[in-house]
């Protein structure tokens, strides 16, 4: 490569960068405009309580997962190595592996636990991201800018919950029914649950909450009078790997007939 070619490459790279930046600016404006909506739901710290008693049958989680994945154009990829998932089913022994016990009650053992991004208070994914493509909003929700993500997957190594998926293959051919109101992702970027920030802006609760038939309670963890706080006051709740200091904002209660647990 001679000097001129080299300079050309540098110039091209620079222009590439500017294009990327401009793209981002558009994104920002859009986000700001959406925030102006007076109906927008607002909180200091959004969180969820998942009532496991409402997910007795595997179909209960499937219904929620399908609604979420369809709404967000999450591709349906069968190969577990490449699959993309925002919310899915695990059993107790895997979702709460650190609490393993030989003599677990049959009931707990066979229960289904929906797992998703915990929207951590101290999100490791945000800490490690080298481009701020993953960031935490003032309302506690951890979201991503897919246009900025370089696909280094450091966040996937950092997240202790396996909550993140990488688009190893082009997701678009694997989207069943396209939701034209929601963007698709490009190959080579990471994605995860967004707690439906775009729905909150329109004054709507997250889609999983809506279709969960009371199984997922959503609200402001910072507000003592919120529904989530009421549930947490009267129930024994657990969080995944809370001992790591990540501060997960997703709580699990056994719910229903508590003694049964």
């Amino acid at each position: 490569m001679n000097r001129r070619d080299f300079l050309k490459v540098i110039a091209a790279a620079g222009i590439g960068g500017i294009v990327v930046m401009e793209g981002l600016d558009d994104f920002r404006v859009e986000a700001a405009e959406m925030n102006k909506d007076s109906n927008a739901l607002q909180a200091k710290h959004w969180g969820m309580v998942i009532d496991i008693s409402k997910f007795q049958k595997p179909e209960d989680i499937q219904r929620v997962a399908n609604a979420c994945h369809q709404y967000h154009n999450v591709p349906d990829i069968k190969d577990p190595k490449h699959e993309v998932k925002w919310i899915w089913k695990e059993d107790f022994e895997h979702a709460f592996a650190e609490m393993e016990s030989k003599y677990l009650s049959e009931k707990i053992k066979t229960m289904n636990f929906p797992v998703l991004c915990n929207h951590c208070e101290e999100p490791m994914c945000v800490r490690v991201c080298p481009t701020k493509a993953t960031f935490k909003r003032p309302d506690g929700i951890v979201v991503m800018d897919y246009h900025r993500c370089i696909g280094c997957r450091y966040c996937m190594a950092g997240c202790p919950y396996g909550a993140r998926s990488f688009n190893f293959i082009d997701p678009r051919p694997h989207i069943g029914m396209m939701n034209h109101d929601y963007p698709t992702r490009a190959i080579g970027v990471v994605e995860k649950c967004t707690m439906c920030v775009e729905r909150l802006n329109k004054g709507l609760k997250p889609i999983c909450v809506e279709v969960s038939r009371g199984g997922i309670i959503f609200g402001d963890l910072n507000d003592p009078n919120s529904e989530v706080r009421k549930v947490l006051r009267s129930n024994f709740a657990i969080r995944r790997k809370a001992e790591l200091g990540t501060g997960p904002s997703v709580y699990y209660v056994i719910g229903g007939d508590e003694e049964g647990a």
């Binding site: 590439g16 960068g17 990327v20 930046m21 481009t131 993500c149 370089i150």
Partner: peptide
């Protein structure tokens, strides 16, 4: 995953990473 965006590391320097 997105090699053409490698300059983002420089354009958006992130000291916590």
């Amino acid at each position: 995953g997105q090699p053409t965006r490698f300059l983002n590391i420089v354009l958006h320097p992130t000291p916590n990473s």
